[in-house]
């Protein structure tokens, strides 16, 4: 059986919001080290890989490996019923056909309980292979989200060009073109505001802004984002 409690439901709310546009149904693979999810989007062009470590929960208990088939649209709707600061407990019994969620307000005067029916999801064993990337860019996640949103007004694709001292995001469409150049900054007060470019060799690659905008939804989860690029390898965000 699985029993896991998060101090703030907002963590799972943000995760589900970031994933739900890409993944319809997928397994939460639960074991004693945590809860993992690997799933390609329905168009089979992007992989979502998520790991919620057991240490992030208190308590966390998982007696044996179980795969919980989740419909993310349903889970997203249920998570909307949770207050951001609510305690969240998720439970699944042996051979469970439901995932139980309990939201408890901070002063314990409101307790909501929901059961979501589990599904059988055919699972491929997928992951992101270890690769030495030509360029690794670290930047504030809000800045990345804004760049993707701004350049969407011009084109459905963006070309990311990483050189020694700058990263250029370029969008070119029927009605015009636009570009945003981001330069590394070292001496910033907040680590999240840092921009770094680590380069083995310059790269210039094009990607679908639709997907980058989906990925950027995860920017509420962390202050900074890392983009790893190489020729002939998927962009890792």
């Amino acid at each position: 059986m699985l029993e896991a409690r998060l101090p703030s439901a907002v963590t799972l709310k943000k995760i589900i919001d970031a994933v739900k546009e890409l993944v319809q149904d997928a397994n939460f693979d639960c074991n004693d080290s945590g809860i993992a999810l690997q799933a390609m989007d329905s168009s089979h062009v992007a992989l979502v890989a998520l790991l919620m470590r057991a240490e992030g929960f208190d308590p966390y208990r998982c007696d044996r490996n179980i795969a919980l088939g989740i419909n993310f649209a349903t889970l997203a709707k249920v998570m909307k019923c949770a207050g951001n600061d609510d305690n969240l407990t998720i439970k699944a019994g042996e051979d469970a056909d439901v995932l139980s969620l309990m939201f408890e307000s901070t002063n314990s005067d409101r307790i909501s309980e929901f059961d979501i029916k589990l599904m059988d999801v055919d699972a491929d064993h997928l992951g992101i292979p270890e690769t030495d990337y030509s360029a690794t860019i670290k930047m504030p996640s809000a800045e990345f989200q804004r760049i993707c949103r701004d350049l969407s007004v011009m084109s459905e694709t963006v070309t990311i060009e990483a050189v020694k001292d700058a990263v250029k995001f370029i969008a070119s469409g029927d009605t015009g073109s636009g570009s945003i150049t981001v330069k590394p900054n070292q001496a910033v007060d907040k680590k999240d505001m840092e921009v770094t470019v680590t380069l083995q060799e310059p790269v210039k690659l094009a990607f679908s802004l639709k997907y980058l905008n989906h990925f950027a939804k995860a920017s509420t989860l962390a202050g900074s984002v890392t983009l790893s690029l190489s020729d002939d390898v998927p962009l890792m965000i």
């Binding site: 690997q38 089979h44 062009v45 491929d124 997928l126 992951g127 992101i128 292979p129 390898v233 998927p234």
Partner: peptide, 14 residues
């Protein structure tokens, strides 16, 4: 479609 198959195989190698 070729790219989709290639991507799936790429992710399966992890």
């Amino acid at each position: 479609v070729c790219r989709q198959v290639w991507l799936t195989r790429y992710f399966e190698t992890a």
